[in-house]
C-alpha cells in the first residue's frame, strides 16, 4: 500500500514538473541568473568591453555621494506620492459611478479603459509631448478660449514637467477602476439595505460599509501601482527625456543612462539592487501593515 502511494507521488511529481518545467527553466535562466549576476557585477568595475574587475564596495560608496542618484530617488518619490493616490481616488470614484451594469455603463467603462490599453505606447508619448509643449494643444486651446497666451512649455518648465507625467499616469486609471468594480460587486447588497433601513446616510454607508469592505482591493491596487510608479521609465525617456535639470529623471532612467549611455554596468547594477531592495522593503512593509487596516471577510465575521 505504502509503495503504491509513493509511486503515485512520484508520478505526480513527474507530471507536475513536465507541466511547469518551462516556467522553472525560464525563471532560473531569465530571472535568477540575471539577478545573481547583477549582484556580482555590482561589486565590480565593468564597461562591457574589458572583463569585470572586482572593486569591492566602491560602487555603493560612489552611490552615497552621487547627488544625481539622490535627485533621481527624490524625483521618483515625488512621482509615486502624487500619482498613486490621485489614480486610486479617481479610479474609485469612477468605479462607484459605473457600479450598475447595463449597456450604458458598459460603454462608459470601455471608453474610460481605452487610454489604459494604449497609454504606454510611443504614440501616446508623442501626443503628450505635443499637448504640453510651448506651442502645443493645451496652450493653443487656452489661447483661443480665454484669449491669453500662456507662453509656457509645460514639459520644459522645472515646476510642471513632472506633472505632465503624473497626469499621464492618472489618465491611465482603467485597470484600477476595473479592480475596484469587481471589489464593489463582491459587497453583498443586503449590507446596504440593512444600513438604509437603520437610517444610514449615503456618506455613512460609504465610510462604514464600502470603504472597509473594499480595503483588500485598495491594498492590491496600492501595491501594484506603487511598484509600477517606482519603476516608471519609458514615459520619462520618451516625453520629458529626464529634463529639465534632471527633474523627471527617475531612478530607472538614471540607472539606464549609467549602464548604457556611460557603459558603467557595475554601477548600474548597484543602482538596480538598491531599487530592488527598496521595492522589496516597501512591499513587505505594505503586506505587514495589512493587519492594521485591511479587512478580509473572515475578520468581519469574527467581529460580529
Amino acid at each position: 500500500m505504502n509503495k503504491r502511494w509513493s509511486k503515485k507521488t512520484l508520478q505526480n511529481t513527474r507530471d507536475g514538473y513536465l507541466f511547469i518545467g518551462l516556467f522553472c527553466i525560464g525563471f532560473i535562466a531569465f530571472t535568477i541568473i540575471p539577478i545573481l549576476s547583477s549582484l556580482v557585477y555590482s561589486f565590480c568595475n565593468y564597461n562591457v568591453i574589458t572583463p569585470p574587475k572586482f572593486a569591492g564596495l566602491k560602487n555603493y560608496q560612489t552611490l552615497i555621494s552621487d547627488t544625481k542618484f539622490w535627485l533621481a530617488l527624490k524625483v521618483t518619490s515625488k512621482y509615486v506620492v502624487f500619482s498613486v493616490p490621485l489614480k486610486l481616488l479617481f479610479s474609485l470614484a469612477i468605479a462607484m459611478l459605473l457600479y450598475k451594469t447595463n449597456r450604458v455603463t458598459a460603454f462608459y467603462r470601455a471608453a474610460f479603459y481605452l487610454p489604459s490599453i494604449i497609454g504606454g505606447s510611443v504614440a501616446i508619448a508623442i501626443v503628450w509631448r505635443q499637448v504640453f509643449s510651448g506651442d502645443g494643444m493645451l496652450n493653443t486651446l487656452f489661447n483661443s478660449i480665454f484669449g491669453a497666451d500662456l507662453k509656457k512649455s509645460w514639459i520644459g518648465s522645472p515646476d510642471t514637467a513632472i506633472w505632465t507625467l503624473i497626469i499621464l499616469s492618472v489618465w491611465q486609471y482603467g485597470s484600477s477602476m476595473l479592480n475596484f468594480l469587481s471589489g464593489l460587486k463582491q459587497i453583498p447588497p443586503t449590507y446596504y439595505e440593512a444600513a438604509s433601513i437603520d437610517g444610514a446616510s449615503p456618506i455613512q454607508r460609504f465610510f462604514r460599509i464600502t470603504l472597509p469592505l473594499l480595503t483588500p482591493t485598495i491594498f492590491f491596487n496600492l501595491v501594484m501601482q506603487i511598484i509600477l510608479a517606482l519603476t516608471c521609465f519609458t514615459q520619462s525617456l520618451l516625453i520629458t527625456r529626464g529634463e529639465p535639470m534632471g527633474l523627471t529623471k527617475f531612478s530607472a532612467v538614471y540607472m539606464y543612462e549609467t549602464s548604457f549611455k556611460y557603459s558603467k554596468m557595475g554601477y548600474g547594477c548597484a543602482q538596480a539592487w538598491v531599487l530592488l531592495v527598496l521595492i522589496a522593503t516597501i512591499t513587505i512593509v505594505l503586506f505587514r501593515s495589512q493587519r492594521y487596516w485591511v479587512y478580509y471577510e473572515t475578520d468581519v465575521k469574527e467581529e460580529k
Binding site: 507521488t9 505526480n12 511529481t13 507530471d15 507536475g16 514538473y17 511547469i20 516556467f23 522553472c24 525563471f27 531569465f30 530571472t31 541568473i33 540575471p34 539577478i35 549576476s37 547583477s38 557585477y41 501595491v223 501594484m224 511598484i227 509600477l228 517606482l230 519603476t231 521609465f233 530607472a252 540607472m255 539606464y256 549602464s259 554596468m265 548600474g268 547594477c269 538596480a272 531599487l275 530592488l276 521595492i279 512591499t283
Partner: peptide, 26 residues
Amino acid sequence: KFRGSDFWFACMMVTLMLPFQVIMVP
C-alpha cells in the same frame, strides 16, 4: 499536487511583482 509546487508558485508570484527594469541590465 507535487513536491515543490508551493515553492515554484511563490517564485511565480515574485516574478509577477518583479519589475522588468530591475533585471534589465543583467
